[in-house]
């Protein structure tokens, strides 16, 4: 029983990290087809926003929402200033967002210095048998699941979600029906950025905030979303579940190196067998 709990914990932690780093990208790249190479830096901005908010006296939990708001607004600015001129021009978006990522790393280093910043972890640990588990990691799993459910409900059950899905599917038709698609694109990008900022804040007590932190996550995020296929939400969840289960299990029974290797190995096999991603054969869904 204890063993089961520990395996579940390892897999849960791994799964929640995959979800946190790729959920925002699922919106920005999965739904909107914008290859945002600055996605890792959005995470980093969220982390810094969270550090500043806690230093200003807010609790960690409130700071996560502050981080989401700050990065969401920043995402809207980026969409207005850069991205909206580049929809459909994949190579140009790639270059522009890469430049943006370099600019953000340089800018944050200039403002806050190269050292990393911390937030004190407010929670302790729980013991299962004689193994201690971090309560914060358990909270992180819950947060990741809550974010998933929240996003699903927003897309599935609200009028806004319906309009967004319609616009992404066929912008001309949506425009013909009187939807201000320009605004929908802007808000969707902002929502993706806000999710990323929130995730960055959630990661701070575990990884800290430092200018180069985006680099540690960006490749994994893209691999997850691409393996997920064309249905951004279901695809990302199933890819995160597969990769999280493999990474959590293998890294625990063997080592972190083998864990990362097996994730990449499985991703390659998966894309060879299902070139359109896990959801490639599903016709409908989110």
């Amino acid at each position: 029983m204890e063993q089961v709990a520990i395996y579940a914990y390892q897999i849960g932690v791994s799964f929640s990290i995959f979800i946190l780093i790729s959920l925002g990208l699922a919106v920005i790249f999965g739904m909107m087809r914008v290859i945002n190479l600055a996605q890792g830096e959005f995470l980093m901005l969220g982390a810094y926003a969270c550090v500043l908010a806690t230093q200003a006296g807010l609790s960690l939990w409130l700071s996560m929402f502050v981080a989401a708001a700050v990065v969401g607004l920043f995402g809207i600015v980026v969409e207005r200033v850069i991205i909206r001129f580049l929809y459909g021009r994949i190579v140009d978006t790639l270059l522009a967002t890469w430049g943006l990522s370099l600019f953000l790393v340089g800018g944050i280093t200039t403002l806050f210095g190269p050292q990393s910043e911390s937030v004190v972890n407010p929670l302790g640990n729980v013991t299962v048998g004689d193994i201690a588990l971090s309560q914060y990691s358990l909270a992180m799993i819950a947060i990741a699941i809550a974010l998933l459910i929240g996003t699903y409900c927003l897309w599935r059950f609200t009028r806004f979600g319906l309009i967004v899905r319609g616009t992404m599917q066929n912008p001309d038709m949506a425009r013909g029906l009187g939807v201000n698609t320009d605004r929908v694109f802007m808000l969707t990008f902002g929502f993706g950025a806000a999710l990323t900022g929130f995730a960055g804040a959630v990661l701070v007590p575990i990884t800290g905030a430092a200018p180069p932190m985006g680099v540690f996550f960006i490749a994994k995020a893209f691999i997850t979303v691409i393996s997920g296929g064309h249905l951004p939400l279901i695809g990302t969840v199933s890819a995160s579940a597969i990769f999280g289960a493999i990474d959590g299990f293998v890294a625990f029974v063997s080592s972190s190196v083998v864990g990362e290797m097996s994730v990449l190995f499985v991703a390659i096999i998966l894309l060879r067998l299902l070139p359109m991603g896990i959801t490639g054969h599903l016709r409908r869904g989110l």
């Binding site: 914990y9 390892q10 990290i17 680099v215 890294a251 625990f252 190196v257 864990g259």
Partner: peptide, 13 residues
């Protein structure tokens, strides 16, 4: 540990 590993939960267990 490769230099980009940030999740140490497995080894801590």
């Amino acid at each position: 540990f490769p230099l980009d590993v940030t999740n140490f939960a497995p080894v801590i267990s």
